[in-house]
Computed example of a mutant assay.
Amino acid sequence: MIQPLAYIHPEAKLAPSVVVEPFAVIHKNVEIGEGSWIGSHAVIMEGARIGKNVKVFPGAVISSVPQDLKFEGEDTIAVVGDNTVVRECVTISRGTKDKYKTVVGANCLLMAYVHVAHDCIIGDNCIIANTVQLAGHVEVDDWVVIGGSSAVHQFVKIGAHSMISGGSLVRKDVPPFVKAAREPLSYAGINSIGLRRRGFTSEQISQVQEIYRILYLSGVNNTTAMDKIEMEFAASDERDLILNFFRNSERGMMKGYGA
């Protein structure tokens, strides 16, 4: 299943069912799991750890050396989870001594020309549309959708089940379950359609909506809003995820519309 015009370093570890198309290049210290497909002219560089049934399209480069002047050649990796699709000309840098790895989770879709910089951690089931640029150390939780041509500032965190509109400049953390739009990027409601598609009940969605009304529409600061939410809402996975995300934000949260 390996074309004779492909180059594969003898120390690379490929499962027997991996397909490698002509002119693909696979360096040493690479591992690729069962059923994966590496397209023509893709380059899989040292430190890549590619899971099962991954599709890497032509022109993609996985595990390139970080674009970070502090990088000193340390032994790091780039991980791509099972069933993920990496489309044309995507670039995924390997980690630095901050995390020693860059991770793209399982069942993700990275559309053409996406860049995932060093030490990014992307969860499972994410869709990152064409030409999105993720700076270093960005964290993206599960089930996130990022619209095309968006740019995400380094160290930003994006919460689970959130959806960011195309062309956005993401400078601050985006909390879970929300839609983010406008310029500057702002709260634009909750991602109710996405939550329904993923099996959240009407009661869960209503609770999330009420929590964000307090956080973004009540006119009080975040500390007061979180105290109010803890008093008025019973503990739940959704409530606790939102509160913990706000409390652990380091870059600060995106604002409500017009704030």
Results as ranks from 00 to 15, higher is better:
residue 81 G to P: 07
residue 117 A to L: 04
residue 101 K to P: 09
residue 32 I to H: 10
residue 41 H to F: 15
residue 78 A to E: 09
residue 128 I to L: 08
residue 99 K to E: 10
residue 127 I to H: 05
residue 54 V to D: 01
residue 38 I to V: 15
residue 7 Y to E: 13
residue 85 V to Q: 00
residue 104 V to H: 03
residue 36 S to T: 11
residue 39 G to R: 00
residue 110 L to C: 00
residue 133 Q to F: 01
residue 32 I to G: 10
residue 107 N to K: 03
residue 131 T to P: 03
residue 30 V to R: 09
residue 39 G to H: 05
residue 101 K to R: 15
residue 65 V to F: 06
residue 44 I to L: 02
residue 48 A to W: 04
residue 52 K to S: 06
residue 53 N to L: 06
residue 63 S to T: 12
residue 88 E to W: 00
residue 7 Y to P: 11
residue 56 V to E: 02
residue 126 C to W: 01
residue 107 N to W: 08
residue 127 I to T: 10
residue 41 H to R: 14
residue 90 V to I: 01
residue 99 K to H: 06
residue 127 I to Q: 03
residue 48 A to F: 09
residue 75 D to M: 14
residue 110 L to G: 00
residue 111 M to G: 03
residue 17 S to D: 14
residue 34 E to C: 14
residue 20 V to R: 11
residue 112 A to N: 06
residue 5 L to W: 13
residue 49 R to K: 15
residue 111 M to E: 05
residue 125 N to E: 12
residue 57 F to H: 00
residue 92 I to Q: 01
residue 102 T to I: 11
residue 114 V to P: 00
residue 100 Y to C: 12
residue 12 A to T: 10
residue 58 P to T: 08
residue 76 T to R: 06
residue 55 K to E: 02
residue 119 D to G: 08
residue 129 A to F: 09
residue 19 V to R: 14
residue 53 N to W: 12
residue 123 G to P: 02
residue 61 V to G: 02
residue 41 H to L: 14
residue 129 A to C: 10
residue 52 K to C: 12
residue 16 P to M: 12
residue 67 Q to N: 10
residue 24 A to C: 12
residue 66 P to Q: 07
residue 20 V to Q: 12
residue 54 V to K: 06
residue 46 E to K: 07
residue 10 P to D: 15
residue 117 A to K: 07
